[in-house]
Design a protein around this nucleic acid. Structure first.
Length: 543
DNA sequence: CTGGGCGAGT
DNA sequence: ACTCGCC
């Protein structure tokens, strides 16, 4: 009884969500200024090859913008200080520190690149609304989009206003603990929170109230500015005369379906109206690790071999820190072509023999075994007896699995369910959730009833509930769980379930079928970052 | 003188 | 294996 009641009442309906988008200011430049504070007052650009990928705000005042070529940036600003940003190590580490810190506020954190995160703060907001100590004055923190005046008697306004206060707290925590500034947007879905976060930059925040939604979405000059509509889709829309947001909004769906297919058509028309029902999906640890390098010319086998070995060693080092083992190896190349230089990438992949995958990453035997595989993959694409001209090499480890030593004993669900006491109090909600998803490679995946996402998130448990005499769902403990369903449950319920499984010494079956999108695709195992003991290294707490 | 990553869908 | 999306 307890469970079904909690599940039914605890899941926020899609329309009542409060979503936060946090976008770090000129992220790579900030990291470089932390590494070398003397750079703070100078115009600073971060360089990758011939491109300045970002720059600090001192440089921006002098007319420099991100993604300018180095030549152009130097022309506009001769005093510009450039640092190399081709090694992503420091950015990656800081990026995961940010995500880790955000996960202390809510386990529902989704990464978007290295410098952006979505956080579903619905439950935090509701907690504050219930807390009498936080009651009273309803003033937004930061900007309100369109200078709309909130209506204190409007519940939706109240939730978003409280959301803006949560956002301010979170930004303050990121600054005090990591020294980073960023912009936040608060709205009722991911699309709107992302769009609104950029309205005041840098180091500011904006909340969007529903009445100003159309103002925000119609302020976009072109459909390409809508996140989710990329270059290709925008071009096809343009060809249909649908370059403007308003044209896309009012286009007959049949026209869109004919050009783009039903799924994309529906999705982008929703987006054009500011509607976005996608969930904040906890990102967890990366599903692949890759290293790449681009260059003007590489045309000998020995040069290829040397470059691949360097990439491989970097990757093995990262894989070792991650604590998982890789079971697929992929090589991507780009060959020189005078025209259309940037899109002719080809790749070949192969399994990594279990013996190699599970041996210690540092050993020379592993390096040579993987180098042999890489050169075989290379020769599947390039006839080495003929002249060739490469401009890029990428090595990627994917199909990452928890390795035996690290994961199964300490981090499996069995660990949590059989231990008398947890090593940590379950306060860190994210950790209990992680331990569940960590065992997601269990092969027995029973498909569950599909349903449109967000409408009835408890359906993943439905098979375990019986009808009782009085017609109420009976309080049987679910014995199977979809990772993605579980992760979207209220944190309190997650904890309750974990604790109850533990008490009853039950090991629930894990399903990994993706809950949304009518279950047509599997996301594969979706284990969360901190579930891996060694992955925790990425989440250092600041001193 | 257009990086170096990531994930999802097909 | 490839396309498309995001930063």
């Amino acid at each position: 009884m307890r469970f079904s009641a909690s599940i039914a009442s605890g899941c926020p309906s899609l329309a009542r969500r409060v979503i936060l988008h946090l976008d770090m200011d000129c992220f790579y430049a900030q990291v470089e200024m932390i590494r070398n504070p003397e750079l703070r007052e100078k115009p600073l650009g971060v360089q990758q090859k011939t491109l300045m990928v970002t720059c600090n705000y001192v440089a921006r005042k002098l007319g420099v913008n991100k993604c300018m070529s180095i030549r152009e940036a130097r022309e506009k600003c001769p005093q510009l200080v450039l640092v190399s940003g081709e090694d992503l190590t420091h950015y990656r580490e800081m990026s995961y520190k940010v995500t880790g810190l955000l996960e202390e506020f809510s386990p529902r954190v989704e990464r978007l690149g290295f410098d952006e995160n979505f956080i579903d703060i619905t439950e935090l907001v509701e907690k504050r609304l219930r807390d009498p100590q936080c009651g009273g004055a309803m003033e937004a923190s930061g900007h309100v989009y369109n200078q709309q005046v909130p209506d204190a008697s409007d519940w939706t306004h109240q939730r978003l206003i409280v959301g803006s206060q949560v956002a301010a707290d979170i930004r303050a925590a990121v600054y005090s603990q990591l020294g980073l500034t960023g912009c936040a947007g608060v709205a009722s879905n991911k699309l709107l929170s992302k769009l609104v976060s950029g309205t005041f930059k840098p180091n500011q925040q904006t909340v969007l109230l529903p009445e100003s939604c159309s103002c925000l979405i119609n302020s976009l000059n072109h459909v390409h500015r809508i996140p989710g509509i990329g270059y290709k889709t925008a071009q096809r829309l343009e060809a249909l005369g649908l370059g403007s947001v308003s044209a896309l909004q009012s286009c007959p769906i049949t026209v869109l379906e004919k050009e783009l297919g039903a799924a994309v058509a529906h999705r982008i028309q929703m987006l054009s109206r500011g509607e976005d029902d996608s969930l904040v999906t906890p990102t967890g640890p990366p599903q692949s690790l890759s290293e790449e390098d681009s260059f003007k010319k590489c045309c000998t086998v020995s040069d290829v071999s040397a470059k691949l070995e360097e990439l491989l060693r970097l990757l093995l080092s990262r894989l070792s820190a991650d604590g998982r083992s890789a079971h697929t190896l992929r090589l991507t190349i780009r060959q020189f072509t005078p025209t259309n230089k940037y899109f002719n990438r080809e790749s070949r992949q192969c399994p990594i023999p279990v013996k190699v995958a599970q041996s210690r990453s540092g050993s020379a035997a592993v390096v040579s075994a993987l180098m042999e595989l890489l050169m075989k993959l290379f020769e599947k694409m390039i006839d080495v007896k003929m002249p060739f001209h490469l401009t890029l090499l990428n090595v990627c480890f994917s199909n990452l699995k928890a390795s035996r030593s690290s994961a199964s004993s300490r981090c499996s669900i069995g660990f949590y369910l059989t231990q008398k006491k947890l090593s940590k109090p379950l306060r860190k909600d994210s950790e209990s959730l992680r331990s569940v998803s960590d065992t997601a490679m269990a092969p027995s995946c029973t498909p569950h009833t599909a349903c449109p996402q967000g409408t009835e998130p408890n359906v993943g448990f439905a098979m375990d509930c019986k009808e009782s005499v009085d017609g109420d769902a009976v309080s049987s403990l679910p014995k199977s769980v979809d990772v993605n369903v579980f992760s979207q449950l209220p944190v309190e319920l997650q904890k309750e379930l974990m604790s109850e499984w533990k008490n009853q010494k039950i090991t629930p079956k894990i399903q990994t079928k993706k809950f949304q999108d009518k279950g047509k695709t599997s996301k594969g195992q979706r284990s969360s970052a901190a579930s891996h003991p060694n992955s925790l290294l990425k989440y250092f707490k600041p001193n």
